[in-house]
Simulated assay, not measured.
Amino acid sequence: MAIELVRDYFSKLGIADKIQEYEASSATVELAAQALDVEPARIAKTLSFKKEDNCILVVAAGDTKIDNAKFKSTFGVKAKMLSPDEVLEKVGHAIGGVCPFGIPDDVLVFLDESLKRFETVFPACGSSNSAIELTCDELYTYANAQEWVDVCKGWE
């Protein structure tokens, strides 16, 4: 199970005890916000996109949408999301629990600037009923992020 990959990953960092699991689903931004009792914007959603034969992950605030022009300008390709089967195959997590933790080394992670307006955010932890509260600096470090990018709209 993908949450076990994330738990093992966080165990090595000494923070596995920070993972929160819920009875209710947190598979969507809205459900996660309800389960965590936070505003939806603080849910750090992880989006999976095709890039040549591989994929990239963009972690963004829950109230954003991808800006296609910004995405293409930043990454040099059209924003084309992976299918649920491709996400599971390439990232190792199923839709609803996709996160930037415990993933293959060749999957590159980018964080969207929309997250920086919050002191802490809540990304998933590999399952549809889990999350972890992290500062943006912790998220950047633990996700092994490549860089901060500006590829979203709707939050300004």
Rank of each mutant, 00 (worst) to 15 (best):
60 A>S: 15
75 F>D: 00
72 K>M: 11
108 L>T: 12
90 K>L: 15
120 T>W: 12
124 A>K: 00
138 E>N: 01
79 A>E: 05
51 K>E: 13
138 E>S: 09
142 Y>P: 11
80 K>D: 13
111 L>H: 13
138 E>P: 02
82 L>K: 02
86 E>S: 04
85 D>P: 12
115 L>V: 08
133 E>F: 01
125 C>K: 06
115 L>R: 10
111 L>T: 02
98 V>M: 00
54 N>R: 11
38 V>D: 09
82 L>E: 02
68 N>F: 13
119 E>T: 14
142 Y>D: 06
50 K>Y: 10
102 G>T: 01
139 L>W: 13
132 I>E: 08
52 E>L: 07
87 V>L: 00
99 C>M: 03
116 K>C: 11
127 S>L: 00
103 I>R: 03
126 G>V: 01
75 F>A: 05
127 S>K: 01
100 P>Y: 01
63 D>E: 08
129 N>G: 06
86 E>A: 02
117 R>H: 10
91 V>I: 15
57 L>Q: 01
144 N>F: 12
105 D>T: 08
59 V>M: 01
139 L>E: 08
114 S>P: 08
101 F>E: 12
93 H>N: 02
54 N>M: 02
78 K>N: 14
127 S>W: 01
81 M>Q: 11
113 E>S: 11
140 Y>A: 13
81 M>H: 01
41 A>H: 10
60 A>H: 11
46 T>R: 08
96 G>T: 04
120 T>N: 15
122 F>H: 14
136 C>M: 09
75 F>P: 11
109 V>K: 02
113 E>K: 14
89 E>V: 12
114 S>K: 06
40 P>G: 05
111 L>F: 10
66 I>P: 09
62 G>Y: 09
95 I>A: 08
86 E>P: 01
62 G>C: 04
65 K>L: 14
120 T>V: 15
70 K>M: 00
43 I>K: 04
118 F>D: 07
56 I>G: 02
124 A>R: 03
103 I>C: 04
98 V>L: 09
69 A>P: 08
94 A>N: 13
88 L>Y: 15
128 S>F: 13
90 K>F: 09
44 A>L: 05
105 D>F: 09
44 A>P: 05
130 S>V: 05
62 G>E: 10
144 N>T: 12
129 N>L: 03
74 T>N: 13
46 T>V: 04
92 G>F: 00
123 P>A: 04
125 C>S: 03
136 C>Y: 07
125 C>P: 01
126 G>H: 06
129 N>W: 09
66 I>H: 08
78 K>I: 10
87 V>W: 05
57 L>E: 04
74 T>Y: 09
66 I>M: 15
61 A>S: 14
81 M>G: 07
132 I>P: 01
142 Y>W: 13
86 E>C: 00
75 F>H: 11
141 T>E: 15
69 A>C: 08
137 D>M: 11
107 V>A: 09
114 S>M: 02
113 E>N: 13
119 E>P: 05
102 G>A: 06
78 K>W: 11
120 T>K: 15
124 A>D: 05
77 V>T: 15
142 Y>H: 14
40 P>D: 09
72 K>H: 12
56 I>A: 00
96 G>K: 05
129 N>D: 10
64 T>V: 03
75 F>V: 02
124 A>W: 07
63 D>S: 07
83 S>Y: 07
106 D>V: 03
98 V>H: 06
144 N>H: 15
106 D>M: 01
94 A>L: 14
121 V>P: 00
58 V>K: 10
